[in-house]
Design a protein around this nucleic acid. Structure first.
Length: 509
RNA sequence: GGCCCGUUGGUCUAGCGGUUAGGACGCCUCCCUUUCACGGAGGAGAUCACGGGUUCGAUUCCCGUACGGGUCACCA
């Protein structure tokens, strides 16, 4: 039987890295088995559905490099792939009727207030919480008829069995047992007529031929309800795969408090999708052995359920940065240019670094400089970028790192000026030497730059390059750290260097 | 609180009865070198949560305990 997995997000909030990791697992599993991955939108809660989120979900998984064959955006043999539409088409009706007729479901007319009271009572008396019968599980037909006649809108609940051991076969944990007496009767159809997750997802999983249900660990405690539903229908259940949650540095479930959690925030922050996808699939999954940096293809080819971990993992932002730097360094010059130009023109980037949570004026400024340089002098940018490639860990860092290439007047670092412009007797002579060598030229090669500096070193009888290189770098960039001096000189060109050198001369003390 | 799941250096992990417990991030040292970074070579850091078994032998198997997590909605 060929594998069919579903990614079934609920459009109630922006997808975060945990959600996307689940989607990644679905994708790799399906691809590994040449199976099908489909997306199904679980929007049965009308009140909590947030407009636009469905698009964000699709955009997030698309950016992550996930491929799906069927979904709300592309249709498929089991369309529609949105539960609200399936409900409108009456797809769930015959199944709830079937359950009602077989006695596996019943109508309950409790009011929310009555249920509240019940829960309070259970809490005070230290009883298990939940609907274990209430007033309606065993109500007489007469009573039900009466309630119906009075116009009350009931919910429909699943009648869980009593005195039975419910077994969930989890692909990661093996056999997990639940005493049925401790599992309460879940609502299948709400009073407004909409199905709940418990009902719609299981019916759809069956109807859509789902072979494996890959979902978050938070579902494991309701899994016995799902298993029973399949049994009540006489259907073959799918294989359940409950993947562990992702935690923040403090050990609590990843949330907004931990900084970025929205998937697309990482795009705005300058992460490459391949790096992010690589990194998050390694939380809770391992190919075995030492492999870490892997392309989507590589992961798909060796992805096995056995590599999935049962315990939660912590999201280590430092390691993500390292991995992203790795991916940036692996970019060809052409890829580098296209990645960065796409990045700086993305409006969500400026918004991200301008926001209160991630405010970073230096990034905003540097990225704006980069963006306008792309417009005015793309060839120059193309030469600048490779010089910083191995020095950044995110696309955003190209902004501040490259800024000195694009400004008319560099910003001098106080300490750098202090160290190299003060009390260094040879610096003025150095600058004059460079100015003389640069004057009148339209361009200069890396080797010519080296020769020019070397010439001064020889003239002055200096033992090392340092005393010439360091002041020159500060004069040209304002900083003590950056690309190799000769590389940066070549790209900067004579004209820019001349004006910087002149200005720096005035700062010698 | 009930039920369920988990527990290898700070973090992600390899391991699947016998290993000097391996790798990666981070940290430190050194090398390379015109700085930073990259790269390279080392280092510190784990009584494999604890206590009992099983076994000739347990990080690996079983049972408790502790700790952590998940879940107890007409939310998913």
């Amino acid at each position: 039987m060929s594998v069919r997995v579903r990614y079934a997000p609920s459009p109630t909030g922006s997808p975060h890295v945990g959600n996307i990791r689940t989607a990644l697992f679905c994708h790799f599993f399906a691809r590994h088995h040449d199976g099908v991955m489909f997306v199904r939108i679980e929007d049965t809660d009308r009140a909590r559905t947030v407009p636009g989120v469905e698009q964000e979900i699709l955009e997030s998984i698309r950016w992550a490099g996930i491929e799906w064959q069927e979904g709300p955006d592309k249709g498929g043999p089991f369309a529609p792939y949105k539960q609200s539409e399936r409900q409108e088409q009456g797809i769930y009706q015959p199944y709830i009727d079937e359950l009602l007729n077989s006695g596996n479901a019943y109508k309950a007319f409790d009011t929310p207030e009555e249920l509240d009271e019940m829960r309070q009572y259970q809490q005070i008396n230290k009883k298990p919480f939940g609907y274990f019968g209430g007033a309606w599980r065993d109500a007489t037909p007469a009573l039900v008829g009466e309630a119906e006649a009075s116009g009350k809108k009931p919910v429909i609940r699943l009648r869980m069995p009593r005195g039975k051991m419910l077994v969930v076969n989890d692909a990661i944990r093996g056999r997990v047992e639940f005493e049925s007496d401790l599992v309460d009767d879940p609502v299948l159809i709400k009073a407004d007529g909409m199905p709940t997750y418990h009902f719609a997802a299981m019916v759809d999983d069956h109807l859509m031929g789902t072979t494996h249900v890959i979902r978050g660990e938070e579902w494991i405690s309701s899994a016995p309800k799902h298993v029973w539903l399949f049994e009540a229908f006489g259907w073959e259940p799918p294989v359940f795969v409950h993947v562990p949650v992702i935690k923040g540095k403090d050990g609590a479930k990843l949330s907004k408090r931990h900084g970025d959690t929205k998937m697309l925030d990482y795009r705005a922050a300058g992460y490459l999708p391949g790096a992010l996808a690589n990194f998050i699939t390694l939380i809770g999954w391992s190919p075995g052995g030492d492999r870490e940096i892997m392309s989507m293809e590589e992961i798909a080819s060796c992805f096995k359920l056995e590599g999935l971990q049962p315990s939660p993992g912590v999201f280590d932002a430092d390691k993500l940065k390292w991995m992203n730097g790795n991916y940036i360094r692996a970019l060809t010059p052409e890829q580098l240019i296209s990645e960065v130009s796409g990045y700086v023109t993305n409006s969500e980037v400026a918004a991200y670094f301008g926001s209160e949570d991630h405010g970073d004026p230096l990034a905003v400024e540097g990225l704006a400089l980069l963006k306008s340089a792309f417009e005015s002098n793309p060839a120059y940018v193309g030469r600048v970028l490779p010089l910083e490639q191995e020095r950044v860990t995110t696309l955003a860092e190209f902004g501040p790192a490259c800024a000195f290439f694009f400004v008319d007047e560099v910003t001098f670092d106080e300490k750098a000026v202090e160290k190299w412009f003060v009390g260094q007797g040879h610096v003025e002579a150095l600058f004059n030497h460079l100015i003389a060598g640069l004057d009148g030229r339209s361009s200069i090669s890396l080797e010519e730059c080296r020769a020019l500096v070397q010439q001064f070193v020889d003239q002055e009888g200096l033992e090392k390059l340092g005393p010439a290189v360091h002041p020159a770098r500060v004069a040209l960039t304002g900083k003590t750290a950056g690309p190799g001096l000769f590389e940066l000189m070549e790209v900067l060109g004579p004209a820019r260097m001349l004006s910087r050198l002149q200005r720096a001369k005035g700062m010698i003390r």
